[in-house]
Every structure is written in C-alpha cells, then in structure tokens.
Design a protein around this nucleic acid. Structure first.
Lengths: 319, 319
DNA sequence: TTGTAAGCGTTATCAC
DNA sequence: GTGATAACGCTTACAA
C-alpha cells in the first residue's frame, strides 16, 4: 500500500488507524485510502497482535458440559454484540479429556477472557497478572456470581410451586454428572425456599432421560408420605422425562404431580401437557455480558447486570 | 528460557519445536526443557503466526441459523478432535446483521477455514488464493456436498414412510426462513422419493412451533383428498409441533397421521407418543470433518466420509 | 552441536 | 505533515 500510494508505511498506518495527534493532508489521506481499497488490503491480525501484545479476540471458555440451546443462544447474542464493538468472539468449548486450558490464554493472547467456570481462581489470577482482562459472567441477579445466579433460578422454581400451594417438593437432578456445577446451586436454591417456608427438605432424585426410569421416580414421589405434589426439574429435558414417566404411570400433571422445568426450550411449549418452566432471558444476559466485556476493555467499571426480569416464569399447564 | 538454560534462543526454538535435521545434545535438550517448564513458558501464538504467515487456528464459519443441539455437538466433537491434532478450533457464528465475514479469514489468518454455507464460491476461491486451506463439510453420504447430504436425509425420511405403506406424503417446513438452506434440499429429497415411487407431489406446508397453527395444518392434511397419511417434518421440533397439533385435534399418530422427525433431540424420545426420527450421527460426522481438516493441512487427499450408517432411522411410535 | 542475524507486518518514537 | 527506524516474539538459513 505504501508503495502504491508513494508514502511511507508509517503514514499508511496513521491514515488507516486514524491516529490522533497526527495531521495528515487530505490529499495523502485519499491516496492511501484509495490504494488500500484497490489492493483489498486488510491488516494482518497476528502482526497487530504481536505488536500490541494481544489480539482483538475475546476468548469465551465454556466448560465441559453439553452445549444446550441456551448457551447456543448466548453465544449467538455475544458474537453479534461483540462484533459491533470490533471484537471477534472465539468460543472454545472444553470437552472433558481435551488437554487442559489453564493457559490457553497464553497461546491465544486474547484481549479478554470470559471465564465461565473453566479457570480456577489461581489460573484466573495468572491471566490477570499477564495483563489479560478476565470477565466472569456475573449475572447480577441473585448476587453476582455464577452460583448465586443458579441458586436464584432454583429459588424461583420453588417459590412458584409454593405459591401454587404445594407443601412438599421434589427435585429432579440430571443423570449427566457434568452438570453438577449447575445442578448443585439450583438445588440449594430450592432447599433455601423450602427451609424459609418450613416445607421440609426437598425429596431429591436423579432422573435419567428415559420414561421408564422417570416413571419409577414419579411413582416414588406419588407414594411418599407426605406425598410430593410438586417437583422442580433441573431443566426442561428432565421435566419432559418426568411428564413421560407420569404418562407411563397413568398419572397426570399437575393433578398428581406438578412439574416446573427450566430453560424454556422449544419442546417445552409443545409437550403434553405444555410445560411450565423458567425462561432465562439469554438475550438480556448476553447483552449484559457483551457490555461487561467492552467496558472492561475500556477500563470502565462493569455495569450492573440485567434486572431480575431476565428470569421469568413461563406458566403453562403443568403447575 | 534461553537465559535460564544458558543457550541461545535459536537452540531453544530447535528443542521446543523438535526441529528435524538438528542434532541437539541430550543434556542441552534437558536443560532447555526444564527451564521452559520452570518458567511456564508457552509460545506466543501471534508471533508464531506472524512468522509462519498463518496460525494454528481452524476457523469454523457457521451460518446465520440457530445453533441447534446437533451443531452444538458437532462443535464439541470437532474441538476435541482438532485439539488432538494441535489445532485450536475457533467457531464464528455469523448471525444475520453482523458485519460480513467474507474476509474474516484475512484478519484471523487461520490455517484452515471450514466453510459451512457462509463463504460464496468467489470468497472461497479468494481465500484459497491467499494460501488458506478451505474445507467444506463434505459428508460423503449422498454425494459429497452439503446439499447432497441434506437431500439424502430427506430421502431417508420419505423412504421410511413409504416402507410403512404411506402413499401420500406431507412435508412440514420450518417457519424460520433462515433454515431454508437446510429445508430446501431436504424437501427435494422427499420429492425425489415420491417421484421415484410414483407417490405424487408431497403436500408441503409451513408449520410454526405453536400447537394451534400445527393443528390447522394437521386438519388440512387429514381432510385432503387423497388423505395425507404420513409427513416428514423438517426437524424434531417441527415434528413435536405436529404431535401437539394432533392432540389438539384429538387425532393420534401414527393412526391418523404418521410423523417422522429429524435430529433425534432428547425431547424426541420423551414426546407423546415417542417420536420416530432420523439420527444424524454427529460424532461420526465431526470425526470425519476433523480428519478432513488435518489431512488437508498435511496436503493429503481428503478421505472419504463416514458411511451411510451415520444417518440412522430411530424408530419409535409415530410411524 | 550451537550461535548469529535477518525478517515476518505492525505501530510508537522521534527526527526531519 | 511525513518518513526513518526500532521493536514486538518467534523461526530459520547460514556461519562458526
């Protein structure tokens, strides 16, 4: 580009980056711009990164659990929002048995790492020391940390069931052990509500995604004394399994057992009967996360997250 | 590292990269390795990329459609497989209204671009000119191209219904227009089978994910003359909507209308009645894609894809 | 077997 | 207002 426009590489750099405190004659500017256009010039990111010590990349580390529809949507929203801020989102799913990612940031050199339950506190601190900004998806709802948020979600489920008049609750854990990081705090939230309302411990069972297994659990709850009349499912899929189990037992929701799911996946609305669930408002959460990333980069304080409205009960026919 | 081990940077480089045709004394090697270990040294990727002209990154461009469970799984499998080959998978979801990605490869400088329906032929050629390898998810099933594969999937659905004795088929298109790239070839596959078997054109309808809308469509098919007795749904969610529509009309599957979905999402097995569907074998497809990427990088010819077994009918109770 | 030096594309500094 | 020049961290001829 410098050759074609007959100026030095430095000048080209000034023009293309609109460097402040540099007065460039309009004519030179035009020449450079035209030349760049003509050559289809695009700055070479690795070189930029080498010079700057970091890239324009945001590394989103997602942990070793299945990528569900919610996370997928979050990624979508994030990609879009960050693109508007000139940042490229790099998602690194971290499946179990892949090599450790503790220092993946060293080799990628992103401007920001979004640490979603992947980096330990120590690793996170190491990254910070190296000048990498670290953002934790701090949904301000429920307190600020990941677990706070999950707990709050569990609380909402339980509160809904309690408001419907249920006095003994069950909790349906997922069979997939990788989901423990979600399931534990959610269950804890349910426990908190039960304790606060004097309802007694929730009756917790692991529910695989098979109708036969779910049927057993449903029967167990139905025969328990006192009877479990309402159950919080870890997510919509588990809830769907419960509904299948109910059908197998010729029981019905919400009469014999009320069920509330979580995530509001498309299948929830189409279930039989249509499933009451908790919508997690990924567009809001994603937008907030994008803002947090951009603000962190600018050195601004991270803004408070979205309001509690980002978690909504979607009431259908199972409660 | 060079300082600590008391050798030159070049030697360090030789050791760490196991450069061929360089004989390094075992003792030196050890010293360097130990020093690197001690310092927690990790090569700075952008610098490497600058030197090499490309990075160890594989850029997976996925188009502007919703990220469903299948794609999510594919990403997971790919990440894992590529990590084993020392490659880092970068997924760039390309939501509509984000800035164009036609030359995203210029700024990322990946070693390989996996072009999944994003880059036009021209853009793809431009990337190739620039020395970037481009891999197209060429599921060898059905022919090799993306559309071939989708067509084959549609064919399998239709063949299954035909084998069940249905003589007039319906096709349920998704409401989301972004899915046309999938839906068109799938529908075409169904058409091919109908033509080959002399079944007449499939009766095609758009089915939004609401039971009321689906109920209308179901009624239409049920009253059509000749009656539509079996329908291929674009995917499991659409199929679930159809089942909900059937319930609303007090009709049953497969008696009044047989339904076959596609994807085998978890909810399919838990539906009422359990949904017959097509499983797409993402682990196989992902593994094949990873191999294709690695082989392309090594200059080897791309191996044939997985066998037709990667598409399997999962027969449940709706056909 | 190891060290030296050049250079990848960019940008900051400083001189012109 | 513009242009040399150096430096970022790494690889690789080539020289020792």
């Amino acid at each position: 580009v410098a050759q074609l426009s007959g100026v030095s590489r430095a000048t080209v750099s000034y023009v293309l980056n609109a460097t402040p405190n540099q007065s460039i004659s309009e004519e030179t500017r035009r020449r450079v711009l035209d030349a760049a256009e003509e050559l289809g010039y695009t700055p070479f990111a690795p070189a930029r990164a080498l010079r700057a010590g970091r890239s324009e990349v945001v590394l989103y580390l997602i942990p070793e659990w299945p990528i569900g529809p919610n996370l997928a949507q979050l990624v979508e929203v994030l990609t879009l929002n960050l693109a508007q801020a000139g940042l490229t989102l790099v998602v690194h799913a971290h499946p179990r048995s892949a090599r450790p990612v503790g220092d993946l940031w060293k080799t990628i050199a992103p401007a920001v790492v979004i640490n979603d339950q992947v980096l330990s506190a120590g690793e996170e601190e190491a990254a910070r020391q190296a000048g990498i900004r670290v953002v934790v998806p701090g949904f301000a709802i429920g307190g600020g940390t990941f677990a706070d948020f999950q707990r709050e979600a569990g609380r909402r489920q339980a509160e809904h069931l309690a408001a419907c008049g249920h006095t003994r609750l069950g909790y349906a854990l997922p069979h997939d052990e990788r989901l423990a990081a979600f399931a534990e705090p959610r269950l804890e939230g349910v426990r908190q509500v039960c304790a606060r309302l004097g309802l007694g411990e929730p009756d917790t069972r692991v529910v695989p995604l098979h109708s036969a297994a779910a049927a057993d659990t449903v029967e167990h709850w139905h025969r328990a004394a006192p009877r479990v009349s309402g159950v919080c499912a870890y997510n919509d899929e588990v809830a769907l399994a419960l509904l299948a189990g109910l059908r197998e037992q010729r029981l019905t929701a919400p009469g014999d057992l009320a069920v509330i799911g979580m995530d509001d996946i498309p299948a929830a609305a189409l279930a039989f009967p249509p499933l009451t669930t908790l919508a997690l408002g990924m567009p809001e959460l994603g937008g907030q996360l994008a803002t947090a990333v951009a603000d962190t980069l600018d050195g601004k304080p991270v803004p408070p997250g979205p309001g509690p409205d980002a978690i909504r009960i979607v009431r259908r026919n199972t409660t």
